[in-house]
């Protein structure tokens, strides 16, 4: 019998409507909040109503009022002023962590993808080793060795974040380097530095930066955690994680204001960076970030 067929056709898949734009109202609200936090950090010197370090033992653990919009801590310091100043370390820390991880991770990832062979193997084994340590544990180990402080925690976290940047860059670059146009450049005699620097990197940078925004949120959380444990920013400096810790005693006695408010600010900021980062990653075409 004769069963020759028309050119193989498949019915189009009957699922999924076209996905909506990633830039929802949630994205814009989150972005707006980030701008607000950045403004707070930049203008803390002028916008803070009080000196964040000024003790006032006659007005401790005050609930929000006209004099202190968000109340005072157990030393009588103004919570709002401390939050505004805390935005500086709150933003600068993660920024430094992400910068370290990108500066070290992207070149290593490109190198691993470009050279392959033994270089690739060495880089992969190194990342595997660092990934065997939970991020927080690595930072705590660093604190044990080099002593507590903002600088130690920022550098340790930056190093801890390098492996995932390497992995991402390596996999993106490996896919990209096999594209047709890259072969064309290669056949034209372009050197690897030029190909990777001018053609591959710009094409994968969007995805890497979207990840960096998500990492920013993680770094903010981890730095706050380390401050909370007493390993990061040291008293009496203003820092959100430290403020949660300092308010815990008062919270147990029924005055939750300081801990709750600074905890809330941390959650809101991390949330904002998560939302913006995931939406950006969506927009550049990478779902399923962890």
């Amino acid at each position: 019998m004769n069963t020759a067929i028309l050119p193989g056709k498949k019915d189009p898949p009957r699922r999924r409507r076209p996905s909506d734009s990633p830039f929802t109202w949630g994205f814009w609200v989150a972005l707006g909040f980030i701008v607000l936090v950045v403004l707070a950090a930049a203008t803390a010197r002028w916008s803070a109503p009080h000196d964040p370090l000024q003790l006032d033992l006659l007005d401790t653990l005050a609930p929000p009022s006209g004099a202190h919009l968000l109340g005072t801590d157990e030393g009588g310091r103004d919570t709002l002023s401390r939050l505004l100043w805390g935005a500086q370390t709150g933003l600068f820390g993660p920024l430094a962590v992400v910068a370290i991880s990108l500066v070290a991770g992207v070149p290593l990832g490109l190198l691993a993808a470009g050279r392959g062979g033994i270089v690739d193997l060495a880089v992969s084994r190194m990342t595997d080793l660092v990934l065997a340590f939970p991020v927080l544990l690595l930072s705590i180990l660093a604190v044990a060795l080099y002593g507590a402080g903002f600088l130690t925690t920022v550098v340790a976290l930056g190093v801890a974040f390098v492996p995932s940047v390497i992995r991402l860059t390596r996999s993106l670059a490996s896919t990209e380097k096999n594209r047709e146009y890259i072969n064309a450049y290669r056949s034209l005699g372009f050197g690897p530095l030029r190909i990777y620097g001018l053609h591959i990197l710009p094409n994968i940078l969007g995805v890497i930066l979207a990840h960096a925004v998500v990492h920013f949120g993680y770094a903010l959380t981890d730095l706050a955690v380390l401050s909370f444990l007493g390993f990061g920013v040291q008293a009496p400096d203003s820092d959100w994680g430290l403020m949660v810790h300092e308010g815990q005693q008062a919270l147990l006695q029924g005055s939750p204001w300081q801990s709750m408010i600074s905890g809330g600010v941390i959650v809101a900021t991390v949330l904002a960076f998560n939302v913006v980062g995931l939406r950006l990653a969506d927009a550049v075409g990478k779902e399923d970030l962890v």
Partner: peptide, 9 residues
């Protein structure tokens, strides 16, 4: 976005 120490308090 809720770190465990914030959840804790």
């Amino acid at each position: 976005a809720v770190p465990s120490f914030v959840a804790a308090i």
